[in-house]
Design a protein around this nucleic acid. Sequence first.
DNA 1: CGGCTGATCGTG
DNA 2: ACGATCAGCCGA
Length: 213
Amino acid sequence: MAAERLERDFFARDGLTVAKELLGKILVHETGCGTVRGIITEVESYMGETDKGSHTYGGRRTERTEPMYHAGGTSYVYLIYGMYSCMNIAAMREGIPQAVLLRSVIPADEESRRIMTALRLEEQNRRRARQGKAPYTADSCPGTLQKSLADGPGKLCIAMGITRADNDIDMVKSNKFYVTEGQVIQASQIRAGKRIGIDYAEEAADYLWRFYL
DNA sequence: CGGCTGATCGTG
DNA sequence: ACGATCAGCCGA
């Protein structure tokens, strides 16, 4: 019944190939609230030390970027803007820091939808508590919260319960955090666009290295 | 549009 | 040690 897990050879390819191939695959995370499965619908490629948009541009191999230098299939989860996590999967092999940023998923089944909604509601209510506002209930929350569950890298991590505790995990070996086969995607279903949020990357900001269904 | 938020990393 | 920077999200 359970779909087949992606192995090392899948991830041990270049970052553009791995990114496009990840579309339609299923990200699986076992959380305290249950197992969440998300169909990957939007990704971006970060192509290593020569890519001005990458954290590893110019060979910045630091404690933070270390997971990108690890074997293809290694998770790279980092904190952005002081409040959100972003989830990447390393491509290629040890020493070559290419990676794929996961930007958007949709729930793969009803159970996953339930968990994602609960996790997003929980996060939203933490915000409301800081603002001194009454918490939402499942019924009183804005409809957009239900419809835009995990469409953005920060929201994806919230909805799938991904935190920095999930950083530098070998997703080929882990039993709690991995990727499986999913939908068959035709090349004609894949759109490409500019990567988001890297205005500082000069000409690299215009490369069409974002892929989505 | 601006505010939120804190780890990270280059610079002194 | 310090401070600018950020591969986002939300609400006005």
